[in-house]
Design a binder for these strands. Structure first.
Lengths: 134, 134
DNA sequence: TTTGGTGCAAATTCTTTGCATCTCT
DNA sequence: AGAGATGCAAAGAATTTGCACCAAA
């Protein structure tokens, strides 16, 4: 597989559309189920293969932090996330921390920095309400 | 299982010792193999169960970022990590970014922040050497 | 003697892969 | 024809769990 000539199949297009249209950072399984509403015969294998290809093409980014499941983000620009420790929901954070961190990364441990991932943890508004009594 | 009376078994003690003594942030499998040198009959199940308990007790923290495997860190104080994108090695970062980030986390999205995880990506000194030509 | 822990093996969960078939060029 | 893609099912990898037995309080 030389993989420099990707085709935009209906499956790939709809997977990408679903990811672009939500900010829910769905898991592969969630993508599968939402795409299935439009393409009832699509398989998990196809979903995984396309998510991988879209990630390689940098149309999509993977969020992998805290849980067992990968989550996929249709916004491939660098940004931060915040994850609810109660329900697992992941939201985007505003861009303002990025510059700050970049400016202050002065790591003298010999690494050559190419990227970074920040996830904040906390209770989302809904869960805060639900767990209010505690 | 009410789990408020933990016992310090030899298995648990040695797992913790191994984690405290290294800065390599081993995977469960790596813990299993190093503990096996002292306790040849220990099982993976026991390793996983103890890693989970030690994490709950906050003796140990889990690093889960970028890869499929969890990694375990015998340093349970909050600190940052840097991960080599080539070999997967994870090192600690100095503490200096923590205060900075804490001071500047002003998230107005309704979350109640309880923690955060930052992993930097890059090439470790060894891999930088190896891949020098590129 | 009750509660927690262990080893072993089976089961789960998430993800990847092999394969025959299909679809674009 | 030939490369990429698909659906299906099986395989893999990492982790969790059920169970019978063991051990400390």
């Amino acid at each position: 597989m030389i993989m420099n000539n990707f085709r935009m199949t209906p499956q790939r297009r709809i997977i990408l559309e679903e990811l672009k249209k939500t900010r829910k950072h769905p898991t592969a399984d969630e993508v599968y189920h939402s795409v299935r509403k439009k393409l009832p015969d699509i398989s998990m294998g196809t979903v995984y293969r396309n998510l991988e290809i879209l990630t390689k093409q940098e149309e999509v980014q993977v969020i992998r932090n805290g849980g067992k499941k990968k989550r996929y983000d249709g916004n491939s620009t660098k940004h931060f996330h915040i994850k609810c420790t109660n329900c697992g929901r992941i939201d985007d954070l505003p861009e303002n921390l990025v510059g700050l961190i970049k400016k202050n990364i002065t790591v003298d441990c010999g690494y050559e920095i190419t990227g970074y991932s920040l996830v904040l943890y906390g209770l989302c508004p809904d869960c805060k309400k639900k767990l209010g009594g505690k």
